[in-house]
Write a protein that binds this DNA or RNA. Structure first.
Lengths: 339, 339
DNA sequence: TTGTACGCGTTATCAT
DNA sequence: ATGATAACGCGTACAA
């Protein structure tokens, strides 16, 4: 059931069948009909494996992300899939589970032709290698685009698509400051994540700009998980001078924080305000609805994937980040601090 | 930078290089060293595309699921990935967004050699085709295993791995009945989903067994989404004889239901009890923590994938469902009805 | 417009 | 233990 069988049955050469499939206009209608009929009869389906091999293209793109469970990525993936469908790519997903991987684990995917390119979504690994070999074995830079996350200086050849995390975090902090808060805590993600570091830096600069000191007890690592954030929150609540507001580096952690605050018998926002980041679909249905920073997730996905496609096609997509706009969404989890 | 270059540089034949890669023990150590060195120097990486082509195997498996955003699938995917890594498969993910697809859209993936097999996770599509052609063009049944979802009778050739949804739903309903509830509502998923229909049937049979009538106003479609469940809940709350408990076909919908109940100024569980299904990681941190049915998600993923691997290898995996055990997790969202 | 024939990089078979 | 060579299915340059 290969192209040969179809050719034989249709009484034409395999070249004609191939042409029928790839540029039908180059085949006479009468011949087309014969081929069409033969394909129908044999139930022939072109062997994608052979086709890709011949074309030297996998038509596959790997998306690396920390955890598929995070609803935040659902939106980004939607954007990626939209473009992938348009451009004829299938998406392979690899979950890092927040683990670090050597950089060539990624580049090798391309060099060994398992995929044509790679999207790195909020994946910290390459950013940990201060001395990373950004060029591959052949001295070539594989098509890689980073989404959501910032890119370390030494990896500047790689383009990224993201919001201005520092600015957004600063705005969220300013919102709390504007409400009258002075003791504002920050639950960060993983120390290794630039994304989180950028948000922390935004928080710190907003505090500094308002002339507010940041106690080192107020900045705790939430490890980007529900559980991590719960532990972090417990520590914050145990502080003598308890913070009146907690800004979490993402909504997932904000959910964990809210849980612990309630467990401690405190009310949100009357006793403590909570602000998140990402505006996942649960943010609005929490009790109370969560104030957070919205990111244009589908747009990030689309732009990231589109840029990757151009890179795969050999186009020069330049380096540097492409910044998309964020938006502070004020809901009911933030209010003035208690007297 | 192909196997030829390595062979030339090492002064051996391509066959030897191939052997070095695939069964090193069949190569003399001295030769191995030469090849190793040549590979190092050239930076050669085997062309996966060519290898798969030659082997007639994609080493790819497609997982079809309604929505990656659902935290429930995160656990199932973890199980799938574990086995996939062991067996050397990469996972392609396709999101249906709850849309229906023709059955051959899936089977063609295998026949056109885009992948070696398919996992259908809670995906309704094949179950809608009463007259589905289960055998492919060549009359062969492609390797497909269904996870979480039940399989319609006409598709019985396909195996599945799942909990006993009807039984589990009955137990959850019995739990509410045991607390003294009589007016128990059910928010179902999509009418087309067998999974949801099984749960509905479990609910109905438990009610019937307890001698409780089910008003048709009490069974509403939540479309498996937050929004759908919210609309459904609003309708339930507007009923003259308002239900004292709502059983939701999954946790996602339970989250939506809880939101609307609170918006209406009602308390959970004092005014209304809520029970979900799945025990996603958010269930425990909701306010109040959600009573729900836990599924062994990783185990489902593992078993599903393992069965698929055997099917791909040509093993006979039989048909019929493989039932894994569920567990009712009672938390604080369910209590006795108000007087 | 159609057919012939080669090559893509690898694995596998068969000699040596 | 190693080498020569034939496939795998498809696309395409070139010839007809």
């Amino acid at each position: 059931m290969s192209i040969k069988d179809v050719a034989k049955l249709a009484g034409v050469s395999i070249a004609t069948v191939s042409r029928y499939l790839n540029s039908p206009e180059a085949v006479r209608e009468k011949t087309r009909k014969k081929v069409r009929e033969a394909i129908r009869q044999t139930g022939y389906a072109p062997n994608t494996l052979a086709r890709n091999f011949r074309r030297g293209k996998t038509s596959l793109v790997v998306v690396v992300l920390p955890s598929v469970g995070d609803p935040f990525f659902a939106g980004v993936m939607r954007g990626i899939w939209r473009v992938a469908d348009e451009e004829g790519y299938s998406i392979l997903i690899r979950e890092t589970q927040f683990n670090t991987h050597a950089f060539d684990e990624y580049t090798d995917i391309v060099f060994s032709k398992q995929a044509d390119g790679i999207v790195l979504l909020a994946s910290i690994s390459p950013f940990m290698q201060g001395d990373a070999e950004v060029t591959g074995k052949g001295g070539r830079v594989p098509p890689i685009v980073v989404g959501c996350e910032a890119v370390a200086p030494q990896l500047s050849p790689f383009p990224s698509v993201r919001v201005d995390n520092a600015r957004a975090a600063a705005e969220a902090t300013e919102h709390l400051i504007g409400l009258g808060h002075k003791r504002i805590a920050f639950i960060s993600g993983l120390a290794a994540s630039l994304l989180t570091r950028d948000r922390e830096q935004g928080y710190r600069s907003a505090m500094a700009a308002a002339g507010l000191a940041v106690s080192e007890h107020w900045v705790v690592e939430g490890r980007q998980t529900l559980e991590g954030a719960r532990a972090a929150t417990r520590r914050l609540l145990a502080l003598e001078a308890r913070p009146t507001a907690i800004f979490c580096a993402n909504d997932e952690m904000a959910m964990g924080a809210m849980r612990e605050i309630r467990r401690a018998g405190l009310r949100i926002p009357q006793d403590i305000s909570v602000v998140g980041f990402d505006d996942i679909r649960y943010a609005e249905i929490l009790d109370p609805p969560l104030t957070t920073v919205a990111q244009p997730v589908e747009e990030i996905g689309e732009r990231t994937m589109r840029r990757l496609c151009r890179a795969i096609d050999g186009g020069d997509i330049g380096a540097g980040p492409e910044i998309v706009s964020h938006r502070l969404v004020v809901r009911e989890s933030s209010a003035a601090p208690p007297k």
